[in-house]
Design a protein around this nucleic acid. Structure first.
Lengths: 146, 146
DNA sequence: AATAGATGTAATGTCAATAGTTACATCAAA
DNA sequence: TTTGATGTAACTATTGACATTACATCTATT
């Protein structure tokens, strides 16, 4: 299974919030229009990002804004905030290896650490990418197009 | 979504095939018993591993054996052989960003390379783990228990 | 040959997660 | 008080993983 598109949607959301903050109020409907998904999907993600302290959402009056400096928001922060892998484990281990088999009895012990290192390698690379990088590049490309 | 347990099952299968090759014929039913999944699940994975040139399966008479030196079979080989992520892409990108929005129009360009680097970091770590490592450690643990 | 014990694979069912959608309670500024 | 938002529950559809049954096919052995 691929990692949920919640991650790329969340990145897109932050890029929009920052890009349009000076020109308009960035509502869930506006974000839904840019990303092309249902507004409720956006609101569910706004909730999670708010709970993680990444954004602030104005109840009633509406509009979202980013709560931290862009270079202090990494892709890993978003990945964990929107809960892309259940229980935080990237790999789904088969649940019931046979304890009566010498291999089945020990396979977890042998593999768990190795799989964790794989996940950590992925997360370390995610941590190197900040929203400042992404939004900076986006701004440059948009400027070159206009 | 987590990565399919097909990966850990495939690793377990190879560990069993190697561990028991001297003492018994390793059939899909025997593997299913150690892993505790349905034999058909095992046979489907045997098919894929065979297609990848990792194992040989004796039709009719039965039994599986490993086709390459253990230190030339990496976890990455198994990951790709059993097709753990659809289309080879680890991340599911939202499908239809709005081309009329400057962010939606460019989000793919900005993100694709970065997401690929994350995936490559994960795969590089997978490539460092060989079945020789895994089976060696398993053998040591089993020996210490008996 | 016939048999026994395997593999190969199609067909079907169940379950869980994702995502779409409708509906509505709630909130805050004008 | 109205308006335009957010917050969230409820329901549905779709998809992938995995279980299971069934059966065709293969090959060593008798």
């Amino acid at each position: 299974m691929r990692i949920s598109s919640r991650l790329t949607i969340a990145i897109h959301m932050l890029a929009c919030i920052e890009t349009f903050k000076a020109t308009r109020k960035v509502t869930s409907d506006f974000l839904a229009g840019s990303i092309n998904v249902n507004p409720v999907v956006i609101r569910r993600l706004l909730s999670r990002l708010k709970a993680a302290g990444i954004i602030k959402v104005a109840r009633g009056t509406g509009g979202a804004e980013i709560a931290r400096p862009l270079n202090e928001i990494t892709v890993l922060d978003l990945f964990t905030a929107v809960d892309c892998v259940e229980g935080g484990d990237l790999f789904h281990f088969h649940e019931h290896p046979n304890p009566d088999c010498p291999v089945g009895r020990n396979i977890h012990t042998v593999l768990d650490g190795k799989l964790l290192r794989v996940q950590q390698a992925m997360e370390a690379e995610m941590q190197r990418i900040t929203m400042a990088d992404i939004i900076g590049e986006t701004r440059d490309i948009i400027a070159a197009q206009s």
